[in-house]
């Protein structure tokens, strides 16, 4: 698992993808920070993160698209699947490498709360809750991308499909409002990753929300493993 994690993480930086992702993500985070927090001189970072989720929808498919699709196309999956590693280890290695790059880009944005600490009095607990929530949200979206990548053979298809799914999730509030049926509404609201994320914006690090995101990732990692196993059996 660590071997795969290390290789994938390195691969982000031997190809342009890692730099493109970091460049765009950091550009927009800087832009939002100055346009929202600096312009209005406020220490609340929740609007900053809300805007950044839109960027995630566009950027995370970039990180996850090649994870499995490229392996299948180049037949390098033969190496991984015939090595003494479990499928779980392979999937986790890849998932964690994308999560680590995402986390790495988040760590760089610690500069902003630091700036606010110097010139103001941000509520550190809220900032911490926001960061945790945002990281968990990103991981959930990455787990979807990993699953999509494992189900296709083309990187482009993987990127487009995961982009559409992430967009749909972003709009799930709107989708649930389309239904009048109370139960359907409830299901959509429960599933809504963004709804869960709202709790963090209030500065609350609730166990149920954390568990929700972790189980969300677990479900998609499980689905990824099943989709790889299914291909071996068909």
């Amino acid at each position: 698992m660590t071997a795969i994690f290390k290789r994938e993480f390195k691969a982000y930086f031997t190809s342009p993808i890692g730099y493109i992702y970091l460049g765009i993500f950091l550009f927009f985070s800087g832009f939002f920070f100055s346009a929202i927090n600096l312009m209005y001189t406020m220490t609340d970072m929740s609007p900053f993160f809300s805007n950044l989720t839109i960027i995630l929808v566009f950027m995370l498919p970039l990180l996850t698209m090649r994870l499995f699709a490229e392996e299948r196309r180049n037949k390098t999956d033969q190496l991984l699947l015939t090595a003494p590693v479990s499928v779980f280890g392979i999937v986790m290695g890849k998932f964690l490498s994308a999560a680590a790059l995402f986390g790495f880009s988040l760590i760089i944005t610690f500069v902003y709360p630091a700036v606010m600490l110097i010139y103001g009095n941000p509520l550190l607990s809220t900032v911490l809750a926001l960061y945790c929530g945002f990281f968990l949200l990103g991981c959930s979206l990455i787990s979807i991308g990993v699953f999509v990548s494992a189900s296709t053979e083309s990187q482009i298809t993987a990127a487009i499909i995961s982009f559409v799914i992430l967009l749909f999730i972003q709009l799930s509030d709107w989708v649930s409002s389309l239904f009048n049926n109370a139960t359907v509404k409830k299901i959509f609201d429960w599933l809504s990753v963004t709804n869960r994320y709202q709790e963090f914006t209030d500065g609350v690090l609730s166990l149920s929300s954390v568990m929700f995101f972790i189980s969300f990732c677990a479900v998609f990692i499980f689905l990824t493993i099943s989709s790889i196993e299914k291909r071996r059996w068909s």
Binding site: R7, A11, T14, S15, N74, K75, T76, D77, Q78, L79, T82, A83, P84
Partner: peptide
């Protein structure tokens, strides 16, 4: 799998390494 070394028809190489 530990006991087997496998060279498939297309060698499974990562071209960017």
């Amino acid at each position: 799998k530990k006991r087997i070394g496998y060279l498939p028809e297309n060698p499974p190489l990562y071209l960017d390494m």
